[in-house]
């Protein structure tokens, strides 16, 4: 039996990595650039905002594996775990993936 304290130390969640520079690190791309059917892992956000907070709370967190299910206009349907989340490309361009 683990205690609450142990749960915390066992986790592999890396926390949000925010780069206030607004620029991508080298060799990384944004969620916006992914094509339908591609999978990737979220690395961090290039900009903090209320929308980013909401997106995080909805489950798009650094470390999470995602798959692009569909793109329609500016809307992008992203699947992670069991949730399907639609975000617009102006939000997606601030999400860094690898």
């Amino acid at each position: 039996m683990v205690s609450l304290k142990e749960i915390f130390s066992k986790t592999d969640d890396k926390g949000s990595v925010t780069k206030e520079t607004g620029r991508l690190s080298e060799g990384k791309k944004t969620l916006k650039e992914l094509k339908v059917g591609e999978t990737a892992q979220i690395v961090g956000f290039t900009k903090q905002s209320e929308t980013v907070q909401k997106v995080e709370a909805m489950g798009l967190r650094p470390g999470k594996k995602i798959r692009i299910m569909q793109k329609l206009g500016r809307g992008i349907l992203v699947k992670t775990s069991n949730s399907r989340i639609v975000i617009t490309s102006d939000v997606a361009k601030n999400i860094e993936v690898k």
Binding site: I7, F8, K10, T11, E56, R61
Partner: peptide, 11 residues
């Protein structure tokens, strides 16, 4: 916030 997420994830 990050620690709460981490807790939820670990839990």
């Amino acid at each position: 916030k990050d620690e709460r997420y981490a807790f939820a994830h670990g839990f």
